[in-house]
Design a protein around this nucleic acid. Structure first.
Length: 307
DNA sequence: GCAAGCCTGACC
DNA sequence: GGTCAGGCTTGC
């Protein structure tokens, strides 16, 4: 699941391999993954040179210099759930679910976009469009200051888990690192951001940065699908402390890791290390208990089987 | 049936 | 505006 550390790993891998190179041809094998007209996507990219790469949260933007009109455009890449960007020789046979090939001039290499579940999207953007996308996103999670973070929490009443996943507030966290950051900060996923004690809010700010920093250093997390541009999986999976560990012992206290569903996303936490705050009582708790029962009946049993 | 990011729309 | 549910997708 590509979140910020995985996208950062892709960016760092791509940069030396594609910078300065000209796009000789573009082949769209499956227009489903293109936002906008596929024809415009192909003509927009062909002949351009790759000038630089930028990332904000989980969004990757490849800046292109278009020789003809001396203008600029951007290739916006959102990996979704199972998107993969690789740089390979054109001779390598195409894997199933490869949707776009970007052939590079001056070599026999190409950039390939593969995406089994097709949640990801590629888009050719004008500078104005890319700015609009960028402003929609909150501060990049590793960059956000403590005061920005605390201010954004103020008055928020939903579950802190959902708050962490809101890319307009803070960009880069997905389900994996949100759970890991909450465990690190010892905060229950159903706690309300606006009602967290100041020290807990500060811990969460530090935890978000710490977890992401460690994951970037380990080239991200891989379950089934994420690979870097050379096709290598990430190394952070073994460091996960709560995510997808339902029923397993907490690495800190030994209690069984629990799972609740919040905003339609599974959340994993340790009931002892992340105690339920007093303000989480009536309806969210009922919902939590209900979804825990559901987890006991279905998902949790599956997790046991896998291990 | 479940996993997930992102978008849309309903509701308060 | 905040919050959340639903839908998309496919392999396990």
């Amino acid at each position: 699941m590509p979140e910020l550390p995985e996208v950062e790993t892709v960016l760092r891998g791509l940069k030396p391999r594609v910078s300065g190179r000209r796009i000789a041809a573009v082949e769209v094998l499956n227009p489903f993954v293109i936002t906008g007209q596929p024809d415009a996507f192909v003509t927009g990219l062909c002949g351009c040179s790759i000038a630089s790469l930028r990332r904000k949260g989980k969004a990757l933007a490849i800046e292109l210099e278009c020789n003809s009109a001396e203008s600029r455009c951007y290739l916006l890449v959102r990996l979704g759930m199972t998107g993969q960007v690789t740089v390979t020789s054109q001779d390598v046979p195409l894997q199933p679910h490869t949707h776009v090939r970007i052939l590079l001039e001056g070599g026999k290499e190409e950039v390939r976009y593969r995406d089994v579940r097709r949640f990801g999207r590629l888009r050719c953007c004008t500078p104005e469009e890319i700015e609009a996308v960028w402003t929609q996103l909150g501060p990049d999670a590793p960059e956000i200051s403590e005061s920005q973070f605390l201010k954004a929490m103020h008055g928020r009443q939903g579950a802190v888990k959902g708050w962490l996943l809101n890319q307009q507030i803070l960009s880069g966290l997905g389900n994996v690192y949100a759970d890991e950051a909450l465990f690190e900060a010892r905060i229950h996923p159903l706690a309300q951001p606006g009602r967290l004690p100041i020290d807990a809010a500060r811990r969460l700010h530090r935890a978000v940065k710490k977890v992401l920093k460690r994951a970037v250093a380990m080239q991200g997390t891989s379950f089934r699908d994420y690979i870097d541009i050379e096709g290598r999986p990430g190394n952070f999976s073994s460091k996960l402390r709560v995510y997808q560990r339902t029923g397993e012992p907490c690495r800190r206290c030994g209690r069984s890791i629990q799972r609740v569903v919040i905003s339609g996303r599974s959340s994993h936490f340790c009931p002892r290390c992340q105690p339920r705050p007093r303000h989480v009582s009536s309806s969210p708790a009922r919902r939590a208990r209900k979804s825990e029962k559901a987890a006991n009946l279905s998902g949790r049993r599956q997790v046991f089987k896998q291990r």
